[in-house]
Design a protein around this nucleic acid. Structure first.
Lengths: 158, 158
DNA sequence: CTATTTATTAGGAATCATTATTGATAAAAG
DNA sequence: CTTTTATCAATAATGATTCCTAATAAATAG
């Protein structure tokens, strides 16, 4: 392997770090740690889940720092913050328009890329006088696993 | 006017009351008051806004009762609960698939009915093995009013 | 490499929307 | 009208998120 290109995620991490620097923000070990958890992450983690993960390598980091880093990334449009009705919030580094399939029983969120969502934006901008910045598309129901289970245990929406 | 049909909203209110009864729940004055605020409401009110509105006619009602009634309506699929990332939650009695245009500056939410959303459900159910129960579709950006304003005052997403 | 400047951090307290609890109350059925 | 329960108001509790402050450490220039 060529030095500096060991992992395809590394370039993504570099990109995040460049974006921080361009925004005039310092690249600190804590921020790098949070970024590492997010890069390539498709699990839609909560702030606390990110915190727990980061703590493994960075035991002294505080939850407030995780929140601040997420806030920064959100402002720079690098992370989507998904608030749910049960007060839980999940973070998604995938910011292009896509569909989230949210299981109402187990809380699992699956990404689906649907090309029709892109045209939606155009249709709306033409029809109404609304300037679209970002979007969020969710379908709630039962995932394949939970569908085949006999009885509901307990709803735990993300 | 014919007695009992004075207001087109009355039949909608009756429908809600029937649904409560069918669910084995009692039709109490407090629940009727909350229902009256919701029927035909397109303002996507928060629990507190509903509470303040209900208090005008029902000064002794508690916020907890409003929450419980909303919880009931949510369970019966008559109201959508929209959690946002800033911890605010809005309620929408319009449960059919539609698009919400959320202004990032003034917080106004506009409904847009887009037929393509119905087919989305079908596409997903065919492609993946997911059983769709409901959906939420949002575009974030600037409404026509805020677009034409010179400077941002303060972001107050719903 | 070191000093200087200034953003950032850890930790804990504070906040605030929402939920749980409990004795009192009133809707529905007979 | 009375009984049986579900529901109510009020308040305490919960828990995710934000605020606060002294201490720390990036970044930059010399």
């Amino acid at each position: 392997m060529i030095k500096g290109l060991e992992n395809p995620m590394d370039s993504e991490l570099e990109r995040f770090m460049d974006i921080l620097r361009e925004g005039g923000y310092k690249v600190t070990p804590q921020r790098i740690a949070v970024l590492k958890v997010l890069v390539g992450n498709r699990t839609h983690p909560s702030a606390d889940q990110i915190y727990q993960e980061v703590r493994k390598e960075h035991p002294m980091i505080s939850l407030a720092t995780v929140y601040k880093t997420l806030e920064l990334l959100k402002e720079m449009g690098q992370v989507m913050e998904l608030g749910f009705s049960n007060r839980s919030t999940r973070y998604d580094p995938q910011v292009d328009p896509h569909l989230n399939l949210v299981c109402l029983r187990c809380g699992f969120i699956e990404d689906v890329h649907e090309t029709s969502l892109n045209s939606l934006t155009n249709v709306v901008e033409d029809a109404s006088n609304f300037e679209v910045h970002s979007g969020r598309f969710e379908l709630y129901g039962l995932c394949s696993t939970c569908r085949s289970e006999p009885v509901a245990v307990a709803a735990r929406v993300p």
